[in-house]
Every structure is written in C-alpha cells, then in structure tokens.
C-alpha cells in the first residue's frame, strides 16, 4: 500500500534519512524501532507528506505522491491516520471537537452521529466522559489516547503511530497494543508503528524494521529480531529488556 524508495532527507543541515526503503502491504503491521533521534518521526512525516524528501519517492497504492503540491496531498492524507509523538491536539477545541474534527471535515453534520462516534472512540481508548474537557486539562497519557482516538475515528486505511505507548502505564499500554492489533485484524487497517517499547513491538509487529544511521539496517519477524546476532540490533533489543530506559 505504501512504499518508500530511497528516501533522503536532511533536517537542520544534518542528513537524517539516507536512502530509506520500506514497504507496507495491505493490512500489514510494520514496527519501526531505532535509537532516539535516528529519524523515525521524520520518516513518518515524509510518508504523510508533511516533509518533502530531497531524493526518493513515496508511493501510495501504486501512485507516486512525491512532487504533488500541498493541496494535492490532502485526499491521500485523509486515507492515512497519524498519531503524533506529541499528541498535537488542537488546544483551542474541546476533546469532543477535536475528535469530531476529522468527521466534520469529511462532511458529517448530524450532531447525534458525531456524539455517538466520539463517545465510541473515547470508550475504545478508555477516556469516556472527557468530551467537554480541554486538552490542557488532560494528563500526557490521556492526551496521547485522545489523539489516538482522533486519528482512528474516521477509520483510515492506514495508521501511522508515533510511539503510541510511550508515557502510558503498562495496563493502558497493553490495551493500546490490543487496539492496534484489533484495528489491524478486524478492520484490515495497515499500520506503521514507531516505538522503543520492545514488548509492544513484539506484540503488534508482523515485521520489525530497525532504523539506523538513516537506513533500514535490519528487517525481520519478531522471532528473527530476537535471534539476530548483529550486535547493534541485539544491544537495542536487550538494552530495553535489561531495563535501560529508552524513551522518546
């Protein structure tokens, strides 16, 4: 569904992505892991068209998106949901209006429908009853979940998650992992999950890609990653298992 070909992108004079290749098939769940600052968020932004790469191409369902103008991207963006690392809720709108935003943009006007859908989405991320709160009144983890609810409410074909479980307690984190699995399996939503959390990576990933020095350094199933003898990959995977916290 999505394919990245040889993506090069520099940020602030430093080459962050240096020839990234990535493929995401229909209903596939790919986890991207990598050290903090290695360019995972930049990669998601390139897929979303929020950043334009200097070289390389982004394909969506076989159509080349690189080179399209800002407004030509919009129809494709509406088919892709994105959870931002920093939540990025609209802080002048209530939680309800934040969640209703994508639906309203897609033409839903009926208040009853909006209320139902928002309530349902909030229930999924266990935030029921927070409709009238402002984002500033939510904790970091609650913001993240509200942002997740906003991203999935219009049932995009593809979801990009930037660290969906960072900053959440283990129980909620587990439920978010289940949600990602559920959306993938039941609704056939393809997803790219960026994470540092190996528990989450093993649980949701059908394929794990290790991003290192601007390239996909290693790619494989969770079992292959666990068995991988490469010191870089091993250190990353074990580093977390030994409890050396890596958080974004």
């Amino acid at each position: 569904m999505i394919q990245l070909k040889e993506i090069w992108k520099s940020m602030g004079g430093q080459e962050v992505l240096r020839g990234v290749n990535l493929r995401l098939g229909p209903a596939e769940r790919v986890v991207v892991i990598g050290r903090s600052g290695c360019g995972k968020s930049v990669m998601l932004r390139v897929i979303m068209g929020l950043l334009q790469p200097e070289a390389g191409e982004v394909f969506f369902e076989g159509k080349k998106l690189t080179g399209l103008s800002e407004e030509e991207w919009n129809p494709y963006r509406r088919k892709i949901g994105m959870l931002f690392q920093g939540s990025a809720l609209f802080d002048s709108l209530t939680v309800f209006d934040n969640l209703a935003f994508p639906l309203r943009e897609q033409g839903e006007k009926s208040d009853a429908v909006l209320r139902d859908k928002v309530a349902e989405a909030l229930k999924i991320v266990s935030l029921s009853g927070t409709e009238e709160k402002m984002p500033a009144e939510l904790s970091g983890g609650m913001k993240k979940r509200a942002a997740l609810a906003r991203a999935i409410i219009s049932r995009p074909d593809i979801m990009l998650y930037d660290e969906p479980t960072t900053g959440l307690d283990p129980i909620v984190a587990d439920s978010i992992n289940r949600l990602i699995l559920h959306l993938g399996k039941m609704l056939g939503m393809a997803s790219i999950v960026v994470t540092h959390d190996m528990v989450s990576a093993r649980m949701v990933g059908e394929r794990i890609s290790y991003l290192h020095e601007g390239k996909i350094y290693f790619e494989g199933t969770p079992e292959q990653v666990d068995r991988c003898e490469d010191p870089l990959v091993r250190d990353f995977v074990r580093g977390h298992a030994e409890g050396i916290g890596i958080t974004g």
Binding site: E70, P75, R77, F84, F90, P102, E105
Partner: peptide
Amino acid sequence: SMKITEQVDALRALGVY
C-alpha cells in the same frame, strides 16, 4: 504556538489546508 506544538501539522495530516 500551533506551529511549534505540531498542531499545524496535525491539521495538514487531517487533510485540511
């Protein structure tokens, strides 16, 4: 402040110009 907190990008990601 919308720009630095990624709200402008969130808007773009939701397909709004």
